Amino acid sequence: MDAYIPYIVVILRSLAAAAAGIFLGNGAVYFFNHMPPVWFTEYGEEPSEELRDPYTQRVKSWPWKFLFSMLFVGVGIWMVNRNWRAAAVTLAAGWLLVEMGIADLKYRIVPDQLVILLAASSVGMLPYHDGWKDFLLGALAGGGLTFLTGLAGKLLTGRFGAGGGDIKAFTAMGLVTGLYGIVFVYILSALFACFHFGGLLLRKKVKKTDSLPLMPYAAAAFLIYFVFFWGRLEIWLRI
């Protein structure tokens, strides 16, 4: 019987992760549709009538509840059998980033409330950081890289290339990932954005002066990092 215990543990963990993933996937749509309208407006501005309308579906239930559920189920099952504590943080932080990505895509704003929650989730990753130095360097690198990219955009095009919400979000992500992780996430986010923008430009869907919201790419890069590279990237770079 003892020989079957590891398999039973894997099954139970996977079932728990699947249940959490379904809850998070459905909750992502429900929560986004019920967020306070002021979260999607700049400070001092009034929410639009569409945002104040309680019957407006900001995100459709189908197919997004299903797709988000499958995403979080897959991430959860994979991560929970590697490290259940890191899996919990990955799911929580990934869920918040998905919400930010939708907000940035639809309304070009990253709610500060979600950024604060993302920063708070980093507490769960403290045991896996190389001390407080890595924790703080990750935050500085995340915010600093985003700010420098925005500054480069200002010098090249006359328009600051990153929003304040992006800077705050990458700072919070840096707290979660640490230094190596946030550099990886930032570079991958930028590559995703550049390739997508180039494809849209070739298809004449956008103009050279247009810009794309960064947070959807950041959410994807964050989840890719934790699923495939977390714990491995740091080892590779230290060799």
Rank of each mutant, 00 (worst) to 15 (best):
L140P: 03
E50A: 11
E50S: 14
V227T: 05
D104G: 06
V227A: 03
G199H: 06
Y30Q: 12
L97C: 05
L237H: 14
D53E: 04
S48Y: 14
Q57W: 15
F184Q: 03
V80D: 09
P63S: 09
L67V: 14
V185D: 05
D134F: 07
G178S: 07
Y7N: 11
M35F: 02
A20W: 02
Y107V: 09
M125N: 08
L175E: 13
N26R: 14
L136K: 00
M79V: 03
P63D: 10
W230D: 15
L24I: 02
N83C: 08
Y30H: 11
G150D: 01
L140W: 03
T177H: 05
E46G: 00
A162Q: 12
G44Y: 07
P213V: 05
P6T: 01
L12V: 09
I5E: 01
L96R: 01
K168P: 09
W62Y: 14
P54N: 07
G101C: 00
M100E: 03
I11A: 13
M173D: 01
L155H: 13
Y217G: 04
R85W: 15
V10Y: 09
R82Y: 10
Y30W: 15
V123P: 00
C194K: 10
R13S: 03
L156G: 00
V185A: 11
D53T: 12
S61F: 10
L212H: 05
G124T: 02
F135I: 08
T41N: 11
P213S: 06
L117T: 00
F192T: 12
G178T: 04
A220H: 04
F147N: 11
N83F: 05
T157R: 12
P47C: 02
V29C: 12
R108T: 06
G181S: 10
G101D: 02
F68P: 12
G144P: 00
L136R: 01
G174D: 06
K65T: 13
A119C: 00
P216D: 07
L105Y: 12
A190V: 12
K133G: 10
V73M: 08
A88R: 01
S121I: 06
W39F: 13
L175A: 11
L151C: 03
G163R: 08
K133N: 10
F31K: 14
G44E: 13
K205T: 11
